[in-house]
Design a protein around this nucleic acid. Structure first.
Lengths: 130, 130
DNA sequence: CCGTATCCCAGCAGATACTG
DNA sequence: CAGTATCTGCTGGGATACGG
């Protein structure tokens, strides 16, 4: 197995599930969308991601049981992704992280680096998680 | 600046602070130790880390304001590290992550991979975060 | 429509030796 | 005591083109 997890610690176990350039974003999008969503539709909502990486992240998340992949055998077939129960149970924690980040990181940047374009606090709060 | 953060999202901001092979471990150790702790003493508690990486992680965490570095100008000088207020405010979230990991990841592994040596649930619970 | 295949690269991480 | 210096390797991520 290539993926040799560092499961010596419960936090590392959890971190290994949400680490990955796009995973939290994907979780947010899935949550905010509500129901099942198709591959291309989901990818379209994530600016800057390439199909290879997108698929990779999805595969890992599916393996970790936080999302569910369903194939609809219509013609042509299509695929839907949604949060699993386990994935949903992560969202309160992600929300805490977002709150913490908003409070502790963005405030600094806005204060000291006004030239950096960063969403305003209001915009971020309004938009929820992401 | 080499470190070009992906601060387009509050979660990413928070993740960028705790991502890093040893950061959560270091935070746990600092928390569990309680007060200021010296460089070598802290490193000694983290099995498998090299001084270069250790220093790197500490520097980033200091830059992000979650730990504090104090130089004591005795002879010879020594250095102490401790959690900042901001760092301390992360710990409830890390605790949630640990609980989640314990519940959702270890249970599987114990069930399906009994040959993999993993701390028992009791051991993990007893030891707190890490 | 939903992905693979191929190629590429930067950056993180590790080992080890050394220093103010 | 608390770090640097140096070298080296791996893996995660990216661009693009193609396939069932």
């Amino acid at each position: 197995m290539i993926h040799e997890p560092r499961y010596d610690c419960a936090i590392d176990a959890a971190m290994s599930v949400i680490e990955g350039r796009w995973k939290t974003v994907i979780l947010c999008k899935l949550y905010r969308h509500g129901g099942p969503i198709r591959y291309n539709q989901l990818m379209g909502q994530i600016e800057g991601i390439s199909p290879r990486i997108f698929t990779l992240q999805l595969k890992e998340m599916e393996r970790d049981g936080i999302i569910v992949r369903k194939v609809r055998s219509t013609k042509p077939k299509y695929v839907e992704y949604c949060l699993s129960e386990r994935g949903l149970s992560l969202l309160p924690i992600l929300k805490s992280l977002a709150d913490w980040g908003l409070k502790n990181m963005f405030s600094n940047m806005v204060e000291f680096n006004e030239d950096i374009s960063v969403p305003s606090k209001e915009e971020l709060k309004e938009s929820g998680l992401c």
